[in-house]
């Protein structure tokens, strides 16, 4: 069964006037947590709230990984029309997250998404481990090789690791790379959980490795952790399916 439609908009660290205008344009009502309707006391199907976040790395965001929130959009430098496009994408999805690359790199997003799925489905330990690992690897690929366009680590040496780390620091402090989007689209329907991770890089396709290297195992771990996966949009979108 498809999730009920998105019903309301909430925000953290966002001007009230702009929020009200966006809510009107999106046709959503505004929602404020009050004693009794926050912290998991709302029935999961009763209300779905999208939260707009000024900058999503802040600690207060951790308080929103709970019902009735089902969609999280980090606004950063986005214009209103881009925000409305993302709200549209979030409408029919069980869980939707759109963060900047710098935020996706800072947060334990895999663990946070897993806790939200766990709030909707009773998962075995193995299922939890599989989803967390596959999602963690997918996000790492999307951040490092997708949006930050870093080459795989070459050579098995501390110096090579240091070079890779330095390149990462350069890219993640460059707004052109750091503000690219990472989207996580999760649907929990019937006996399956599907999770798509989308980046805005040049497209990444795994290559066979001639001999043991320090990198390149991410897709091996993804393939053993999910029921099936597909690379779409030239490698910018990884779609994974898990039994639930």
């Amino acid at each position: 069964m498809a999730p009920p439609p998105l019903a309301a908009l909430h925000s953290l660290g966002f001007p009230a006037k702009r929020l009200a205008d966006l809510a009107t344009m999106a046709g959503l009502s505004l929602w404020q947590p009050q004693a009794g309707n926050a912290g998991g006391r709302v029935k999961p199907t009763a209300l779905r709230v999208l939260v707009l976040l000024g900058h999503a790395w802040e600690d207060q965001v951790a308080n929103t990984w709970t019902e009735p929130y089902t969609a999280w959009i980090e606004v950063a430098a986005l214009a209103d029309h881009s925000i409305l496009e993302l709200i549209q994408r979030a409408r029919d999805t069980s869980l939707y997250i759109s963060f900047t690359t710098i935020t996706a790199n800072r947060r334990d997003l895999a663990g946070e998404v897993l806790s939200m799925i766990g709030g909707r489905r009773r998962l075995s330990r193995d299922s939890r481990d599989n989803i967390e690992l596959a999602l963690h690897e997918a996000l790492s690929n999307a951040v490092l090789h997708g949006n930050l366009q870093l080459e795989s680590l070459s050579g098995l040496s501390v110096d090579a690791l240091e070079r890779f780390s330095n390149n990462l620091t350069c890219r993640i402090t460059d707004p052109d790379f750091a503000n690219r989007r990472i989207d996580v689209i999760c649907d929990i329907i019937g006996d399956a959980v599907t999770i798509d991770v989308v980046d805005q890089g040049n497209g990444f396709l795994p290559k066979p490795r001639p001999e043991p290297q320090a990198s390149g195992r991410g897709f091996d771990l993804i393939s053993v952790s999910c029921q099936s996966f597909r690379l779409l949009d030239g490698g910018r979108r990884l779609s994974m399916r898990f039994p639930a």
């Binding site: 967390e132 690992l133 963690h136 690897e137 790492s140 680590l153 098995l156 040496s157 501390v158 090579a160 690791l161 043991p212 290297q213 320090a214 990198s215 390149g216 195992r217 991410g218 091996d220 771990l221």
Partner: peptide
């Protein structure tokens, strides 16, 4: 508690060095 593919890569670097 948890290791990822990058962690495995770093263990291989340790072994090589």
């Amino acid at each position: 508690e948890f290791v990822d593919s990058a962690g495995i890569g770093m263990l291989l670097i340790a072994r090589e060095e």
